[in-house]
């Protein structure tokens, strides 16, 4: 059995300053801070390859794929680009749930009528 190469490098979160190991618990490479879920705009999604923006990306919503996996949608605060990244096992559950219930806390239509359906 060939062991996966262990990633020992770290990065510092641009928002909360936490020093995070670049390797997630499942062995994949991290792309957002597990504490505040903020990321950095280093990959250009539209063109592919590295991005020269480098600004902070805030988590704006949770998407659930058909497979049941959760994805975090990030938006760059500087150029507005959107990316989606899979949720890690040790991501802050409180922030994840808070993002999931935020649309229901501010509904654009009355939710009472859905009780009749």
């Amino acid at each position: 059995m060939s062991a996966k190469p262990i990633i020992t490098e770290t990065f510092t979160c641009v928002r909360c300053g936490l020093t995070v190991g670049a390797s997630a618990p499942d062995g994949s490479r991290r792309n957002h801070c597990p504490s505040c879920l903020h990321s950095r705009h280093v990959v250009d999604r539209v063109e592919g390859g590295p991005s020269e923006c480098g600004a902070r990306m805030t988590p704006i919503s949770i998407a659930v794929l058909r497979t049941g996996d959760w994805m975090v949608i990030h938006r760059c605060v500087r150029c507005g680009e959107l990316t989606s990244n899979p949720v890690c096992g040790d991501d802050n559950r409180l922030i994840l749930i808070r993002m999931a219930v935020r649309p229901l806390a501010q509904p654009p239509f009355p939710l009472e009528t859905f009780g009749d359906l």
């Binding site: 704006i60 919503s61 998407a63 935020r102 649309p103 501010q106 654009p108």
Partner: peptide
């Protein structure tokens, strides 16, 4: 439509994929 997000002013946005 992949997910729904809310602007700070309370307006809903649909994330399209």
């Amino acid at each position: 439509a992949l997910s729904v997000t809310v602007r700070p002013d309370g307006e809903w946005l649909i994330i399209h994929h």
